[in-house]
Amino acid sequence: MMSGSIRPKTAEQIEAMGASGRVLAGALNEIEAAVEPGVTTGELNEIAETYIRDYGGIPSFLGVPAADPGIEPFPGAICASINDAIVHGIPGSAVLRKGDIIGLDCGVILDGWHSDSARTLAVGEISPDASRLLEVTRAALAEAIGASVAGGHIGDIGVAVQKLVEKAGLTIVRRFVGHGIGRTMHESPQVPNFGRPGGGPELLPGTTLAIEPMVNIGSAGVVFDDDGWTARTADGSLSAHFEHTVAITESGPRILTEAA
């Protein structure tokens, strides 16, 4: 749950979040290298958790409470969302097969500072439709980051994603949104992947956001598995998700979740 006002960060705090983000990017690179047919999502989870702890970080997804009552806290260090899973797939015994796409979302706490990042990867060779989905979603994140400039608004970020995705004939998931990030994983403001130019709060220098377009080939509808976490497309179509933690600075957007 998020509440309260947007808290801009100082330059030192942004540096600290960048350090957290570098550990996270390293962990994602490790699991990306391990993605191949036959690997289970549980194995990927273990690689990520070991890497993060080796670098003195804490996997922030572990134990995140569910939004709805009666659902267990999130049990993994990563979210592993295969094919029609949009986000929040629980890592476990699921085996990657050639032709799958897998969304890998992970978060790190280092010295009390959060970072949050995701990417969707191809397992072996994938269909042209699937690779186009990945391309468009990756490009949408890049556009969104480009729109994250001081003096702009949250709505401009949504517009950037929406324009590109809808022109490509794909659909945007509206059930989930990006978020402010800092001392906690979810802070104000919400960062929807749709919006109006100039809508929402103004982007002040020092604002740190987790920007994360989630894009489907078919319906934008969301259904949940019995585990209460795994969110899937209502029509079973493929879904992709890319995310970076970004700081808005006087000199433009700075991606905090990149490897050194």
Partner: peptide
């Protein structure tokens, strides 16, 4: 980790 959108 994506945040569920708050609704009024």
């Amino acid at each position: 980790m994506a945040s569920p959108r708050n609704r009024r």
